[in-house]
Simulated scan of single mutants.
Amino acid sequence: MSTTSRKRRASPEKSRPSVWWLLAAIIVPIVGLIARIEIEGEENLPEEGSYVVAPNHMSEIDPLIVAVAVWRIGRAPRFLAKESLFRVPVLGWALRVTGMVPVARESTAAAASSTVASARRLVASGHGVIVYPEGTLTRDPDLWPMRGKTGAARLALAGDIPLIPVAHWGSQRILPRYGKLSLWPPRKSVRIVFGPALDLSAHIGHGKEQSTLVAVTAAVMQGITSLEETLRGEKAPAERWNPSAHGQKETGRLDS
Score class of each variant (00 low, 15 high):
A111Q: 13
G207A: 09
A119I: 07
Y51N: 04
A35K: 00
T3M: 08
S244A: 12
V190E: 00
Y132V: 04
L143G: 00
M146K: 00
G32S: 15
R6W: 06
V166G: 00
A76L: 12
V53G: 02
L64A: 13
G233H: 03
I65A: 01
S125G: 15
V97M: 10
I192M: 12
R173N: 14
D160G: 08
A124V: 11
F194W: 09
P196F: 13
A35V: 03
L91R: 10
V52I: 11
E48I: 07
R9Y: 13
A219R: 08
R6V: 07
E250V: 15
Y51T: 03
F79I: 06
M100A: 12
V52L: 08
P185M: 05
E42W: 02
W184Q: 05
A10S: 15
V190F: 00
N56Q: 10
S11W: 06
R191K: 14
K235D: 09
A25L: 13
E40H: 12
V101R: 00
P63V: 10
T136A: 04
Q222F: 02
Q222W: 01
R154D: 01
M221N: 05
V90E: 09
A218C: 03
S118D: 07
A156L: 02
V28N: 05
K7R: 13
P141R: 07
W71M: 13
A35Y: 00
V66S: 08
P89H: 12
V66P: 03
E239G: 03
R253A: 14
I174S: 02
H203T: 08
S50P: 11
L80M: 15
A215Y: 09
T3R: 12
P243E: 04
A117C: 06
G126M: 14
P12V: 09
S189W: 10
P196R: 15
A81Y: 00
Y51M: 10
E250M: 15
G205V: 14
T4E: 14
A158Y: 03
K235N: 07
A236Q: 09
V123Y: 10
V216F: 07
S171P: 01
G148V: 10
V66D: 02
P237V: 12
G207Y: 11
E250T: 15
T251G: 00
P162I: 06
I30W: 10
L143W: 02
F86W: 09
D142S: 10
Y178S: 09
D255H: 06
K208N: 14
K82S: 07
G32T: 07
Q248F: 05
T98Y: 01
A67V: 05
E234C: 15
W241D: 00
S201Q: 12
A35T: 01
L213V: 06
E234D: 08
V103K: 03
P162M: 13
I161R: 02
V101Q: 03
G252V: 06
D62I: 05
A111I: 02
